[in-house]
Design a protein around this nucleic acid. Structure first.
Length: 476
RNA sequence: GUCCCCAUCGUCUAGUGGUUAGGACACCGGCCUUUCAAGCCGGCGACACGGGUUCGAGUCCCGUUGGGGAUGCCA
């Protein structure tokens, strides 16, 4: 039995984006499940658009997603000689021919055919001219059958193909002597012994040409599996221009690698009613049969849900490590790893949809000065709250222990002193006093996290604030 | 224009001739409750349309409509 071998072949013309990431993930998962190899090849033959920094960005995205590849990264540009040799071979065998038609005449021919209702393909002017190397500036074209179906059994779409009469002889080598994508891909896949080509459905049309190339080169055709595209809200193919979808951007926004992998694998692939898939799960159960045939729209809400799910599952150290950069940014300075902070992060898990949000929610712990929420102050720090805050402050100074139990008792005492005031009437003013806002974890837990000294200080400041508000109200 | 592909709740999907068409996200309501969440319970909500085939079609065939992709000396 031959070893299953897949590859991911991105072109380094931008950051790794969602669609590419999913293709990579499918290839990775399939290879891993089959106990095969997963290769990485950078398609950098378009020298104008390829950039070294993008290549590194793609690699970095892959690593972050947890998609490890086998062997060295192969760079297509370094295989130029092999590609040219293949063209020479095709020329020698008569499967390809030189074409010295000018761009203008080719374009004119195309327009003529289009006007006549045809497919607008190359008219084959040089097909049987048997031009030699001295025919001037020329391209090399692949000689395709004139009729008949060029078909294949797609692992996703089933019987597929196109009639040869709809195709023109395609250029495989530019007039400057450099090889073109379709030729390079096929030659590389043959040399790399790729057994399964899993890629976006936008390659379905290329497939016919590439298959013809395999045949012309006398190579065995791999299994082709085309994956439906990921589309945007308008149902259009995700594009780097229109959509903000780079993997690194999701990372910066505080999404977990686990969540992103889980999200994209379920775009166009499913396994019964299961929703949660770790990389490890995929390694054990991914199969091509689970791939659907219709385009999938990416739903950000589902990503958020998954992200929170995985945030909740992280162990304390892992969570701390991953949220740290965001905490630092929020604090504006290095942050100390303390039991109180760990406790807070734990409380924030079920309140955070992203790591960025978690850091934002931890703001009152990360900074000394509070940002008072204007609406909350207006609603909860009003004159009526003054005696309550004073009462809490007074009792808090002599509390036996700054712990949840004692604090709970303290609130009960305050309530009793104020005509059995409802807990909420005490909790909300205190919450705004110590966090600046109307929302936080349970008030006792919040106070515990903040600590006695800081809590007392913030209570005092809030009391001063209320008094000031009363004063200015009188003046007005 | 030409070729190719797709079509189940708003979204992701299960479904492989016989189901009250299932699940998840979102949404709505309730419970819980010191806020926000989380959690639990419940609700809304789909087979694009028209023909066939069949005792019986979401499932098979044809057409229509709608959407998408490809039509490069880009990858």
């Amino acid at each position: 039995m031959t070893l299953i071998r897949t590859r991911f072949a991105p072109s380094p013309t931008g950051y790794l984006h969602l669609g590419s990431a999913r293709t990579a993930l499918f290839n990775w998962a399939f290879a891993r499940h089959q106990g095969g190899e997963f290769k990485l090849r950078i398609e950098d033959t378009d020298l104008d658009r390829s950039r070294g920094e993008y290549e590194e960005a793609v690699l970095e995205g892959m690593r972050w997603l947890g998609l490890d590849w086998d062997g060295e990264v192969i760079r297509q540009s370094e295989r130029r000689e092999r590609h040219l040799a293949a063209t020479r071979e095709l020329l020698a065998s008569g499967h390809a021919y030189r074409c010295n038609c000018s761009r203008e005449s080719v374009e004119a021919g195309k327009q003529r055919d289009l006007a006549a209702g045809g497919p607008g393909t190359y008219d084959g002017h040089c097909r049987d001219l048997d031009l030699g190397p001295d025919c001037g500036e020329h391209t090399v074209r692949l000689r395709l059958p004139e009729e008949g179906l060029i078909g294949w059994e797609d692992a996703v779409f089933g019987p597929s193909g196109q009639d040869a009469s709809q195709m023109g002889d395609a250029i495989i080598q530019r007039s400057d002597g450099t090889p073109l994508y379709n030729l390079a891909v096929v030659v590389d896949d043959i040399d790399m012994e790729i057994t399964h080509v899993i890629r976006g459905a936008d390659h379905q049309a290329n497939c016919v040409l590439q298959l013809a190339l395999y045949d012309a080169l006398g190579a065995e055709r791999p299994i082709m599996a085309h994956v439906p595209l990921i589309v945007d809200e308008q149902g259009k193919k995700l594009s780097k221009r229109r959509n903000n979808v780079s993997v690194q951007q999701f990372r910066e926004e505080g999404y977990l690698q686990e969540a992103l992998d889980n999200w994209i694998v379920r775009l166009g692939w499913s396994q019964g009613d299961n929703e949660f898939f770790s990389l490890n799960d995929l390694k054990h159960s991914f199969s091509l049969e689970g791939i659907g045939r219709s385009p999938a729209g990416a739903d950000p809400a589902k990503l958020e849900w998954l992200n929170q799910h995985y945030i909740k599952e992280l162990d304390s150290d892992d969570l701390f490590q991953r949220v740290y950069p965001h905490l630092e940014r929020e604090a504006g300075r290095p942050v100390k790893d303390t039991p109180a902070l760990r406790r807070l992060l734990d409380l924030l898990r079920e309140r955070s949809t992203t790591l960025v949000q978690m850091a934002t929610l931890a703001r009152w712990q990360l900074r000394e000065d509070l940002d008072y929420d204007e609406k909350a102050v207006k609603k909860h720090l009003k004159p009526a709250a003054l005696p309550i805050l004073e009462s809490v402050l007074e009792k808090a100074q002599s509390i036996p222990e700054w712990k949840e139990d004692s604090l709970s008792q303290l609130f009960d005492d305050v309530s009793a002193d104020h005509d059995d005031l409802k807990l909420g009437k005490i909790a909300q003013p205190v919450r705004v006093a110590v966090t600046g806002g109307p929302n936080s974890p349970g008030i006792f837990e919040t106070l515990e996290v903040i600590g006695q000294a800081r809590s007392l200080h913030r209570l005092e400041e809030a009391i001063a604030l209320v008094q000031k508000r009363i004063q200015s109200a009188k003046v007005d």
